[in-house]
């Protein structure tokens, strides 16, 4: 009778639902998951990137049957995972430079293909700086050549490894060390920054998707979809950074959830340059709910609060909601 009944208490929101058949369980619920990045790494408490990387790579490991190599750009993920003499990676993994992860991955893919090992899949990963700024040239090259690489950007919206400086992915009004909360227009300026998922889509590569650490099943589904496709694929994962965002370490998932529920971070997927599905907002919240729990926006809530700036950010969320049609789903 449980087959007929489509209600499972936590549905697919939680990591697992004991009432669901094992085949429907998330990769993360599996005690035998790859733990591609394992304990002992030096990420900060509550690190969204460490979490997102394990979510994504474990899913990719399952999808590839463990036949996978990873290339990593310089950044937090690289530094906290491989300080000599210890590495947290349990998969074949390589770090070269900050800006070249996509090109290195292209080379790896080419080598695997030419040596008859193209059952081994290539995943490249970088933070937002290594993706949207310094790594964009090689990334764009990897896209346009349609190299068989899944590139995952763990977006924490600034250069965190160097101590929180603005990147091309830093949102307007956010305080960083290079966009400090001083002067008449505190924080990062409006009207700047790159929307890399859309840039990726403009390359008309087979698959582009966004995801967050707040929706594990969605993230795993997208990795699985991406791994079922050959060619250049791009996954943009929002990974809150407690240190850089000034959020509580325990709130990492919550902040990511509010980013999507406010409309500020639209979750969607696109095939061949066209949006093919979106994740509707479930419980819409005003952007203020998202902004308030992050110290990087604390200057917006002084006396008096920066209502104009908050309204401007709300307008961005509203535009996303229109653009991707992610209106609240009917219950």
């Amino acid at each position: 009778m449980t087959e007929r009944l489509r209600f499972y208490q936590t549905g697919s929101f939680a990591v697992r639902n004991r009432l669901l058949p094992v085949v429907d369980a998330s990769v993360q619920s599996d005690p035998g998951r790859a733990n591609a990045i394992t304990s002992g790494h030096r990420a900060c408490q509550g690190c969204g990137e460490a979490l997102g990387a394990r979510y994504a790579l474990d899913a990719a490991m399952r999808a590839s049957g463990g036949r996978m190599v990873a290339v990593n750009a310089t950044g937090c993920l690289e530094v906290f995972s491989t300080p000599y003499p210890e590495t947290s990676w349990q998969i074949p993994w390589m770090h070269s430079l900050f800006g070249n992860a996509a090109a290195v991955a292209s080379g790896v893919a080419a080598a695997l293909r030419v040596t008859g090992r193209d059952d081994v899949r290539v995943v490249a990963q970088a933070g937002d700086g290594g993706t949207v700024d310094i790594g964009l040239g090689p990334l764009s090259g990897m896209f346009e050549r349609n190299d068989d690489v899944l590139f995952i950007c763990y977006d924490n919206e600034a250069y965190m490894n160097t101590g929180v400086q603005r990147s091309g992915a830093t949102p307007p009004a956010a305080r960083t060390m290079t966009t400090p909360a001083v002067g008449p227009h505190p924080g990062a300026p409006f009207g700047q920054g790159k929307d890399l998922p859309r840039i990726a889509m403009a390359h008309e590569i087979p698959y582009v998707a966004t995801a967050t650490v707040a929706d594990l099943r969605d993230l795993e589904d997208k990795v699985t979809t991406a791994m079922s496709i050959r060619g250049a694929r791009y996954l943009h994962v929002l990974v809150p950074c407690p240190l850089g965002w000034g959020s509580a370490s325990r709130d990492t998932v919550r902040v990511a959830r509010l980013a999507t529920e406010s409309g500020l971070f639209p979750v969607f997927e696109a095939h061949d340059g066209e949006v093919t599905s979106v994740t509707p907002i479930r419980r819409r919240v005003p952007v203020e709910d998202y902004l308030r729990i992050q110290k990087r926006y604390a200057h917006l809530f002084g006396e008096p609060p920066a209502t104009g700036v908050i309204a401007h950010i709300q307008a961005t969320a509203d535009r996303n909601i229109r653009r991707y049609r992610i209106e609240e789903a009917p219950v």
Partner: peptide, 14 residues
Amino acid sequence: FHCDNCFGVCPDNA
């Protein structure tokens, strides 16, 4: 109730 969330969301596999 065995939702595995603690097992899943730990960034440190702890």
